[in-house]
Design a binder for these strands. Structure first.
Length: 354
DNA sequence: AATGCGGGGCG
DNA sequence: CGCCCAGCATT
């Protein structure tokens, strides 16, 4: 296959200088691959170095509190990745003496590691010829071999894995895996691929038939649903009432301004009572904000609320948090605008008073 | 095989 | 505004 050598040469000349490419530590490679799942390089850059400085080894990660790990993950999304990584670090300490496992079977068995990440770690950290098929590789290979079937079908991914396996150059698994991905990231783009800068266009069947813009074929996702969420801003002095979301599910384990889905203020109060066990009295409408997830849209209506003075907080997920400590707990992006507005309001008032 | 799970950047 | 991205776990 002529294209393999051409691709390798192109990669060695054009690869980006990325922090996870500066060493071969399997632990550090693993962290990068988890962060990069469904996440762009530019986004990860801001997190990667900071995370490794705080958790330089698998033991440091295993010993850390999950809440601190989540704080370092704050804003990165898909928070089960952090939870699974923390769990996997514990397994590596207990079952592998703190040394990152070196066989595909053992790597794949770790929580949060699927076929892609296992292949990436095996090939990039250990230079072993295990295919790592992500969205980039699916796109590159579907064009190169003119695979017209929907790439979301598992059978297509299997076929691409086999094609990559056949193509692996001897002793260059590390570079080859990254070369395929790098080509997808820099040249073989989803829309408007830069075919005339592509080192393997002569071997690309899609390019030959001018079908590069029609591939890969992919089914489109259903429309998102929008829901109204009422948020209670409950402040007493310099403390604000926050809720820690359940460990599993959406934004699991992160902190939020307590709220419920609902149609109106009446439902707001009723559902709040059921969910949190306290009566609230919405005083003033404070602000509105919207947050769009991949699969869901929250239209948030935030009200300043009073509690019954005699009310005590029994729900253990609810906790009074001093305003100064709001920046020390993990709060997802959905609530950052509320948090910042709150902190600005209070700090400007404070300055005015002093 | 289908669904839930974040967030940001782009045209 | 829709689409896409260095996917995995669960059902």
């Amino acid at each position: 296959m002529d294209w393999v050598k051409l691709l390798l040469n192109w990669y060695l000349e054009n690869k980006r200088d990325l922090p996870w490419r500066r060493q071969k530590d399997a632990y550090a490679i693993w962290i990068s691959e988890i962060m990069l799942q469904q996440t762009r390089v530019d986004t990860v850059l801001a997190y990667y170095t900071r995370f490794l400085e705080r958790f330089p080894t698998v033991r440091d990660l295993a010993q850390a509190d999950i809440d601190e790990v989540l704080k370092y993950w704050e804003g990165l999304g898909y928070y089960t990745r952090a939870k699974n990584m923390h769990k996997a670090a514990g397994e590596i300490v207990r079952h592998h003496q703190g040394v990152f496992p070196q066989t595909y079977r053992e790597v794949l068995a770790l929580p949060g590691i699927g076929p892609y990440t296992a292949g990436a770690v095996m090939s990039i950290a250990y230079n072993q010829p295990y295919p790592a098929v992500d969205g980039n590789v699916l796109r590159v290979m579907s064009r190169l071999y003119l695979l017209k079937k929907d790439i979301s079908q598992p059978a297509v991914k299997k076929e691409v894995e086999n094609l990559v396996k056949q193509a692996f150059p001897a002793e260059q698994a590390c570079d080859f895996t990254q070369a395929l991905i790098e080509l997808g990231a820099l040249v073989c783009l989803p829309t408007a691929p830069k075919c005339f800068g592509c080192p393997i266009r002569q071997d690309c069947k899609a390019f030959q038939e001018n079908l590069q813009n029609a591939l890969p074929s992919k089914q489109k996702k259903p429309a998102r649903k929008s829901v109204i969420r009422y948020i209670a801003l409950i402040q007493q002095g310099d403390r604000i009432l926050m809720n820690k979301r359940p460990a599993d599910g959406l934004l699991g384990g992160l902190w939020e301004f307590p709220g419920v889905e609902g149609k109106n203020k009446k439902e707001f109060c009723e559902k709040f009572k059921i969910k949190y066990g306290v009566d609230i009295f919405p005083d003033s409408h404070w602000m509105d904000t919207k947050h769009e997830f991949t699969h869901l849209i929250w239209e948030m209506k935030i009200y300043r609320c009073r509690l019954d003075p005699a009310e005590t907080i029994k729900e253990t997920r609810l906790q009074w948090i001093p305003l100064q400590e709001l920046n020390t707990i993990a709060i997802p992006t959905a609530f950052q605008k509320i948090k910042n507005t709150l902190l600005n309001t209070n700090s400007s008032r404070g300055r005015f008073l002093t």
